[in-house]
């Protein structure tokens, strides 16, 4: 029994399970949330589910919805690959499963953060409208066709706990890759006399 347990890559098992948990959690809890005014506008953002709200009206952008589906399938495939790999890390094809699975949560996380930073920079430079990544700020909104009127609004933004769960999942998957050599040591090269 101990021999079987010793063959399991526990980091991969935890990473795979956490990755699948991230998918489920992210459907209901955003990674990053932006609130404008008193819930006048609300943006719930995550690679799995991006949702925009204007008071009682909620909508999604079709292209972003397609990217959300890509992210769900990517994370799901990654989670399944990590789980399968974790219990058979010594099979000849296991390293392919690990290579397929361990990078995807990290890439998803990086693309999300880079996309978020890019979106806020574009808002600042093109629209001259300051959107915070974390914390609160009062920004001036551009009003087309109206002169002499200034529109200011309080914006509050922040990363939610589901984002940090995704960070943990990505960390566990990287740890699984580093731990691989402990559960499936590479056979040392033998020299033929």
């Amino acid at each position: 029994m101990n021999a079987i347990l010793a063959k399991i890559n526990w980091f991969a098992l935890a990473g795979g399970a956490t990755t699948i948990m991230v998918i489920v959690v992210s459907l209901f809890y955003p990674w990053w949330q932006l609130t404008v005014g008193d819930n006048l506008v609300k943006v719930d953002a995550s690679p799995v589910n991006m949702n925009f709200g204007f008071l009682d009206t909620s909508f999604t952008i079709p292209f972003i919805w397609a990217l959300n589906v890509v992210s769900i399938l990517t994370l799901l495939a990654s989670g399944i690959a990590m789980l399968v790999y974790s219990i058979i890390p010594r099979k000849p094809y296991s390293k392919h499963l690990l290579g397929f699975g361990y990078k995807k949560p990290l890439y998803t996380l990086l693309f999300f953060v880079i996309g978020l930073i890019a979106a806020t920079v574009i808002c600042q430079t093109v629209l001259n409208f300051n959107v915070p990544l974390m914390g609160s700020t009062t920004s001036t909104l551009p009003i087309p066709f109206v002169s002499g009127t200034t529109l200011r609004v309080l914006l509050s933004a922040g990363f939610q706990w589901s984002f940090w769960l995704a960070v943990v999942a990505a960390g566990l998957c990287i740890a699984a890759r580093l731990y691989h050599k402990n559960v499936a040591p590479t056979p040392s090269a033998t020299t033929v006399p």
Binding site: V36, G37, D38, N39, L40, T138, T149, L151, R152
Partner: peptide, 12 residues
């Protein structure tokens, strides 16, 4: 209103 602060600077 609803968190939006409108300042009418000129004598609108």
């Amino acid at each position: 209103f609803s968190g939006l602060q409108i300042q009418i600077d000129q004598r609108l």
